[in-house]
Amino acid sequence: MDTLRGRLLVATPAIDAGPFLRSVVFILDHDGDGALGVIVNRPLDSDVDEVLPSWGAYVNAPVCLFDGGPVAMDSALAVGVLGDGLPPLGWRQMAGRVGLVDLEGPLPVNGEFAGLRVFAGYAGWGAGQLEDELLEGSWVVVDALESDLSSPQPEMLWREVLRRQHDDVRFWATFPPDPGAN
């Protein structure tokens, strides 16, 4: 399988519980050893200022931590979309203008990032695990927009990403939260 780096995984209704229910995952890395990504549509109640006081002024609204996934929830991971200038110190490219930001490195200068989010934890898959989940129909792979990483309404992202697809996948956007109550 080709790399999924820089693409989105959108949870299908086959995932009906757990941390990936209606999740949208941006894939940061994917190769024969596995995959790593962050859930981009799960804002948490904690503000970035509470955990990383010097970084709060640089993240996009909503200015909160995001639940990046069930792995290493006690660690922070920052993802930045480059602005129009040169890459800043502490930024490592993952896909296009999207990269990891070193939270122990220098603070960004205004305009270096078009978008910046801080995640508690990440999503990870071992070798072949994600491919098996794709075969089971748990995920749909779609193209990512840079704006997906800094959506001002991340809780709406699952439906928005599905709606913009050009095939029958777009109809899943109308899938009720509890099909048994429909």
Rank of each mutant, 00 (worst) to 15 (best):
N110G: 08
V98E: 01
V71L: 09
S75A: 15
D74T: 12
G99R: 09
V118W: 01
G111S: 02
G99F: 11
A76P: 08
V109A: 09
N110V: 11
E50N: 02
A78V: 04
L44N: 00
P106C: 06
L103P: 03
E104F: 13
P53Q: 08
L86K: 13
V63R: 15
V81I: 14
D47V: 04
L103N: 08
R92I: 06
E104A: 15
M73Q: 14
L44R: 04
L82E: 01
D16P: 13
L52R: 06
D74A: 12
D74P: 04
R117Q: 07
G115T: 04
G80H: 04
P88N: 03
L44F: 01
P70F: 10
I39E: 06
A11C: 13
F66Q: 14
D47P: 07
A78Q: 08
P53Y: 07
R42H: 14
I27P: 04
C64F: 00
L107F: 01
V40G: 10
G111D: 00
D74L: 08
A57W: 05
L77V: 14
D33R: 12
S75H: 15
Q93E: 14
P70L: 07
R92D: 11
L65C: 04
A72E: 15
A76Y: 15
V10A: 09
I39W: 09
G32Q: 14
F26E: 07
D33K: 10
V63D: 14
P53F: 08
D29A: 13
A11N: 13
V109L: 08
L103V: 06
F119S: 02
G115S: 09
M73S: 11
N41A: 11
G96M: 01
G96W: 04
A123W: 00
F20W: 14
M94T: 05
A76K: 15
F119C: 03
E104I: 10
I39M: 15
S75F: 09
L89E: 15
A57P: 09
G80P: 11
D67G: 11
I27H: 03
G56Q: 05
V38Q: 06
N110T: 12
F66E: 07
A78M: 06
A57M: 10
G105Y: 10
R92E: 15
V25F: 09
G83I: 06
V25N: 10
P62T: 04
D33Y: 08
W55A: 02
V109F: 02
V109C: 02
V79A: 08
M94C: 07
V98S: 01
G32H: 12
D84T: 08
E104V: 12
F119N: 02
L116E: 05
L107C: 01
M73K: 12
G80V: 10
R92Q: 15
G105I: 08
G18V: 11
S23N: 07
V40C: 12
L28H: 00
F20K: 12
D67K: 03
P19E: 11
L9W: 03
L8T: 04
E50H: 03
A17H: 15
